[in-house]
Design a protein around this nucleic acid. Sequence first.
DNA 1: CTGAAAGCGCTAACAA
DNA 2: TTGTTAGCGCTTTCAG
Lengths: 342, 342
Amino acid sequence: MKPTIYDVAERAGVSIATVSKVINDKADVGQKTKKRILKIIEEVGYHPSMVASALTGKHTHTIGLVIPDIANPFFAELARSVEDTGHANGYSVVICNTDNDPEKEVQYLWWLNQKKVDGVVLGTGMHNMKALKEFMEQNIPVVLVSRDIPTLSVSTVLVDDFRGGYVAAQHLLELNHRKALLLVGDLDNSSEQNRLKGFCAAFEEAETDKDNIKIIEGLMTTQQAAQAVKDALEKDSTVSSAFALTDFLAIGGIQGAREAGKNVPEHFSVVGFDDTFIAVLSYPPLTTISQPIVEMGEIVTQTLVDQIKGKKQSSRTIILTPDIKIRKTTANNTMSMQEPAQ
Amino acid sequence: MKPTIYDVAERAGVSIATVSKVINDKADVGQKTKKRILKIIEEVGYHPSMVASALTGKHTHTIGLVIPDIANPFFAELARSVEDTGHANGYSVVICNTDNDPEKEVQYLWWLNQKKVDGVVLGTGMHNMKALKEFMEQNIPVVLVSRDIPTLSVSTVLVDDFRGGYVAAQHLLELNHRKALLLVGDLDNSSEQNRLKGFCAAFEEAETDKDNIKIIEGLMTTQQAAQAVKDALEKDSTVSSAFALTDFLAIGGIQGAREAGKNVPEHFSVVGFDDTFIAVLSYPPLTTISQPIVEMGEIVTQTLVDQIKGKKQSSRTIILTPDIKIRKTTANNTMSMQEPAQ
DNA sequence: CTGAAAGCGCTAACAA
DNA sequence: TTGTTAGCGCTTTCAG
C-alpha cells in the first residue's frame, strides 16, 4: 500500500505530528529531525494525501472554471490563462462546460460545492440566479469573467464592450462606411448588448440614418453568419460593411460577402470581436476588437486566489479596455467615394 | 456552518449510518425513513462532502487530463469530449497543460497523485519515463490518447497516422502532383513520424523520385510555415503541393504560397491534418486528414472509467482510421499536365 | 523542539 | 431495517 504519514513517522522514530510539521514547513522542528524526516520521505516515496489534508485543513486547492464550451477558442485561451495562474498559486482547475444550459449550470455548481472547491471562476451566464445565490451562501468565493451580473456583489473582470463596439464603428466610419450589418449571436447576453449599443452610438453621433444599421441576430455558427450576410447583400448591395460580435461570425461574414460576389476588403469591410488566434488565421487577416484574454484570466484568477487566502478586499469590478487590431478586412469604402460625385 | 451528516441524522432521529445509506442509495433502508431523511436533507440544504467520502470510499471522482496546451484547438476539442463523457460518468476533470515541458509533465503527475485522482488521460508525450512508471506504481489507471508509448502496456487510443499520411499522398498523387513539401513540427513525436512515413510510402509506390519530397521540420507556428513555404517556392517553383502535419501549418502553407505569388488551389495544393474547426474557417476551406477527435475522447475516457470501476479488461490499443475531407485547397496539378506535351 | 489526542465528515463491516 | 464502531490520513491545539 502507499506509504502514509504513519509509515514515515515510524521509520523516523518520531510522531506523525512532527512529520506533518515538516511537510507543511512549520517553523518549530529541529534541523536534524527535519533533515532525517525529509530523507525518509524521499526514501519511501511518500506523497501526502491532499484529500486527507483537505478534510482537516479545509482547503482542496482546487478551483472550478465554469464556461459555456472549452472548444470555443475564446474560452480555451481563457482557460489556459486561468489554469496557468491557478497552477502558479498551487490550485488545480476543473473545467465545467455548461453550453449555456441552465440545468447544467446549476448541476455543476452543486457538484463544485460537494467537491468543496476553494473557489470558482464563473465565465458563463447564470440563468438560475437562485441557485447561484444559494451556492454563494456556502461561502465559496466566486469571481466573474467576461459576464456581468450587476445584482451580485462579487469581483468581476470585464472588457469594456460598449467601447469595443464604439471603436469598431469609429473605424468603419473613418473608412467612409455608412451602412453596416450587425452580426450578433445571443442578444440575451449583456456583453453583446453593450457591444451593439456602443456601435450604434458611434453611428448616431455620425448622424447616420438609423436604418443604415441592420441587426441580424440569432447567429450561432459561421455558416449562419455567411448565409445571413449573403442574403442581406443580395437584398441591398449598397451595404458596405459588417461588424460581427465574435471572430467566428466575422469569418462567416467574409465568406458570405464572397459568396455574394463581394471581395473583402475591396468591396466589403468586416470587423470582428475577440481577437482569438483565428483572427490571424483568417484570410484576409481579420480586423478585430481585441480582448486581453490572457490578462483577464490572470486577473480573475489572482483575485480569486487572494480571496481564498483571506485577503479581504472589497469586491471590485475591473474593466479592461479593448483595442482595435487593424488588419486586412477593412478598407476605405469606394462606393461612398463616388456618391459625392453624383 | 454547513450541515453535515450528523445534523441530518440528528434531525431525522436516526444514525449517521442510515443517512449514509440513503445518500448512496443502498438497498436496506425502509421507505418511510428514506423519504423522511430525503426531506430533511432538502430542508437543511445538505450536500455530502466528496472529500470526506473520498477519504473513506477511496474515490475522488476526478480524473486528470494531461495535454500540451488546451488553447490548441485539437486538444480543446479533445478536452471537451473527455469532459463530456467524464461528466456523464460522474467524474470531473482537471486540466494540466504541460507545454511539452518535461518538468511540468512530472510535476503534474506528482500533483495528480497527491490529489488522488481516480485516473488520468495522458495526451502528451512523457519525456521522463521513470516518473511515469513511478506514477503508475501508485495503481492509478492511466490511458493514452493520440500518443503512443510502446513500452507501456496501457490502453491507448490512436489514429492511424501512417494511413493518414498515405491517404494524403494518394490524394495528391491522383491530382498529378509529383513534388511536395512536407511541413512538420516536432519529429520527436511518433505520430508525426508515422504521418510522414505514410506519406513517403505512397510517393515511393508511385515511383516518384525521392527528392521530390522536401521535408521542412521544426515548424512551430503558422508564420514559420508560411515563411518556409515561401522560401521553398522561391527556390524551386516547380513544387506544386504541400502536406502539413497539422491544420495550423497547413494554413501557414496556404499563406506562404500566396506570398510567393501562387494561388491555392490553382497553382498550389495543400492538405492538412486534424480537421479541427479551423479547417473549415480557412480560405479556401482546407482539404485535410480528419481525426475523429470527439470519438477518441469518448473512447479513452470510457475506457478509463471502466478501468477505474474495476472492469478488468486487458489493456488494448484502439486504432481509429482517419478520413480525408476533400475541400478546396487541392486541385489538379496544371503544371504536370503540360509536361507530357513537351 | 516534540508528541498525545481529538477530531474533519463520511463509509463499511458487524451487531442488534 | 437500523445503529455502533472503527477507521480513512492528516492538522492542530495543548502538554511535556
